[in-house]
Write a protein that binds this DNA or RNA. Structure first.
Lengths: 138, 138
DNA sequence: TTATGTGCAAAACATTTGCAGGAGT
DNA sequence: ACTCCTGCAAATGTTTTGCACATAA
């Protein structure tokens, strides 16, 4: 099994990464596909999936396994937490410090070898909060 | 839109809940289907999905939106954290105290109204840890 | 009796994969 | 040249849904 063949620099990969870096919206694979297609109309959805997967394995980007039905992707690789709006599904970053010490607490409570953790907050984004207050007719 | 019609107590619902209570394995909908089918061979997969969804909305059970491709279900409703094995995908409970204060930290760092949080740890279960050590041929 | 729930099958999504031709090194 | 990569389309896997019949209340 070959491990260290470097990833080829293809136009598709460059554009996918560039588009992902442009946004902070944590797009799904399909949303990335839509963004990239504006520049490369003939790109295939499979290529987008393959490359997002590959880049996340390499550590070039982050694959977010947050709630909802689709995986999301993030060009910000530095560990950080996320909030997801229960109404609209939007995912945003939470700029609070990542507590590595939490891993040690967990290690004491399981038989697992703990490697990392992720916190997903759940709440209402400001837009949906306002929408709730405007009409209590629901 | 009717909101408060009580859920009917059907055999299917009883059996689904009973089977879920028996295990600590956080089964997927399909695994629940297999468990339940031993007692109700003619139950449909759709019924299992519908009822797991309904019970999680009611708060009778928990729907876990952890990593991996399938949702998982848990009869333990009390808030608690989970670990997922990156090798075999197994999900287990982490018996460490849930820190409500973490919600306030997050509230300061976002424009969201924070409602709750969930921590998913990632690591290697004891079985997979041993498997790793037995053969470094991989 | 009647609104809800069920089984079955099809549909709807999300993601992966096989393959023949194309492009990076 | 020789792999690796891409587009396309089909396959796979998960979840949802429409409908006619069944059943709890």
């Amino acid at each position: 099994m070959q491990e260290n063949t470097p990833m080829r620099l293809t136009t598709q990969r460059q554009v996918i990464l560039e588009e992902l870096i442009k946004v902070t919206s944590h797009p799904t694979a399909n949303e990335v596909y839509d963004m990239v297609r504006k520049r490369l109309p003939r790109i295939g959805l499979g290529t987008v999936y393959r490359n997002l997967e590959l880049m996340s394995e390499t550590g070039l980007i982050l694959k977010l396994e947050v709630g909802g039905t689709q995986k999301r992707f993030d060009a910000v690789v530095k560990p950080h937490y996320h909030v997801r709006c229960i109404d609209c599904g939007k995912v945003s970053d939470v700029d609070m410090p990542v507590q590595q010490s939490i891993n040690e607490s967990a290690a004491k409570s399981t038989h697992y070898q703990i490697l990392s953790h992720h916190i997903e907050f759940t709440g209402l984004c400001d837009y949906c909060t306002k929408a709730k207050h405007q009409t209590s007719v629901n």
